[in-house]
Simulated scan of single mutants.
Amino acid sequence: MSEVITLRRFNTSQPWGFKMQGGSDVGMPLFVAHVSPNSISGQAGLKAGDAILRIGSVDVLGFTHDQARGEMLRCGNDFTLTVQRGVINAPPEASSEPAEQPRMSVSDSDGPYQEVQSKTFKMLDSELPQAEQSGARPASIFDKKRQNRSAYTKTDKSGYTKPFGQQ
């Protein structure tokens, strides 16, 4: 027994929310492989495993996947799907309960990589104890009011910051 599902969206930026597979080019009937629950298709009642018989008023039996997709594009933002329920067994990924998979733990401590720290981090790390003692914050290359600058950067009288050693 077939069922008619009406799909309507406001503009083309909204996805329909289902994945279609099959077609005469792969030797299978067109069917719905996956439906996102809160999508337009999910709310309209489309289900994984439904065979697609008609798109709008066009019979799609014998259509390739691309022909069926083209027919959906021609229909625009408002069309009907005539489907037959339960023709194709829903793939395991479309089941309602997600399969439990063990989590993996990866440790880089045994790997060939070495720990790398940026110059900025090293500079701030060295200035932090002094800043905590005086109650001030570490020097910043963006702090124009601060006169005591880090050895990494110097500023001339105009306020421009130059890398250390550059005149």
Rank of each mutant, 00 (worst) to 15 (best):
A90T: 08
P98V: 09
M20L: 15
Q101C: 01
L73N: 09
G23H: 11
P112K: 06
K144N: 04
H65T: 09
T80M: 05
M20S: 07
A48G: 12
R137Q: 10
P91T: 02
V58K: 15
D50E: 06
M104Q: 00
S134E: 12
G23N: 10
R8Q: 15
E93I: 10
G62R: 06
Y152W: 14
D110H: 01
L73I: 14
Q130T: 15
G111R: 08
I52W: 01
G62W: 05
L7E: 08
Q147R: 14
H34F: 08
Q21T: 13
P91V: 07
D156A: 08
H34D: 12
H65Q: 11
Q14V: 15
P37S: 12
S24W: 06
D59P: 01
A90E: 13
V60P: 08
V106G: 00
F10N: 15
Q14K: 11
Q147F: 03
G76C: 04
E100I: 12
P98D: 11
R8M: 11
M1F: 03
D125S: 14
A94N: 02
G23R: 13
A136F: 08
R149E: 13
D108K: 00
Y152H: 13
W16R: 03
S96Q: 10
N148R: 12
D108T: 04
E93V: 03
G27T: 03
A151R: 15
H34G: 01
S150E: 01
P29K: 13
L81F: 02
P138R: 12
Y113G: 06
G76W: 04
T155Q: 10
L53C: 10
D59Y: 00
F164H: 14
